[in-house]
Design a binder for these strands. Structure first.
Length: 106
DNA sequence: GGGGTGACCCAGT
DNA sequence: TACTGGGCCACCC
């Protein structure tokens, strides 16, 4: 498969995150999986690194880990934003069963 | 060139 | 619920 450059991969990740609808979320792993075919990469850890470094311009709070936990150091802000978008929360976690989204889904 | 680190994930214990 | 081990891949010494 085509193995895009690291920089192109960053673009792919960011543009996908931008497409996550209000009130829905995606896990790092789901993002990695969705881009796997196109990018030749499938590393949730890499997506996490990318969000940490380049997530400033996208709705980063709509990306959480597979358990629905929010990024360390930003729990408060993320929780606040998710809440205002109507994302179903279970205490400190996002209710992934209800909020998870993936491209192709309406 | 080599090794540690991290906004991760999954299966197993 | 919590911890471990193996896999992942770019970044920074």
């Amino acid at each position: 498969m085509a193995r895009v450059t690291p920089q192109e991969y960053v673009e792919e990740v960011l543009s996908l995150v931008e497409r996550i609808p209000r009130g829905r979320v995606m896990s790092y792993g789901a993002v990695a999986d969705s881009l796997a075919d196109r990018s030749g990469r499938n590393s949730a850890r890499l997506v996490g690194s990318i969000m940490a470094r380049h997530g400033g311009g996208v709705p980063w709070h709509r990306v959480v880990n597979s358990a629905g936990r929010m990024p360390p150091g930003h729990e408060q802000e993320a929780r606040q934003r998710l809440l205002s978008e109507g994302v179903p929360l279970k205490g400190e976690y996002v209710n992934m069963a209800l909020a998870s989204w993936q491209p192709g889904l309406s």
